[in-house]
């Protein structure tokens, strides 16, 4: 049998590789987006702290910006520093 391919479409899937399934702040899945965004992906990225805890960037920034005192990881309460 001889098959002629006339047309094809590429499909790819992606996942965030995080150490948890859900963001501890908004409790939404990491592979979804934070509650303020509509589409998951690069526009709603994940960020890690040096303590290795991970959150939606929008969620952790919202929390850190609301803090007048020392900025801590909400999970382990160590000082929050972004992991490069």
């Amino acid at each position: 049998m001889k098959v002629t391919i006339r047309h094809w479409s590429g499909v790819a899937s992606w996942l965030w590789v995080a150490n948890d399934d859900n963001c501890g702040i908004c409790r939404m899945p990491f592979n979804g987006c934070c509650p303020d965004c509509k589409v998951p992906g690069d526009d709603c990225p994940l960020v890690w702290g040096q303590c290795s805890h991970c959150f939606h960037m929008h969620c952790i920034l919202k929390w850190l910006n609301s803090q007048q005192v020392q900025q801590q990881c909400p999970m382990c309460r160590q000082e929050w520093k972004f992991k490069e």
């Binding site: 409790r27 929390w63 005192v69 801590q72 309460r77």
Partner: peptide
Amino acid sequence: LPSERWNPTQN
């Protein structure tokens, strides 16, 4: 202490 207070991972 601030470390004993509310944070968003409490529920």
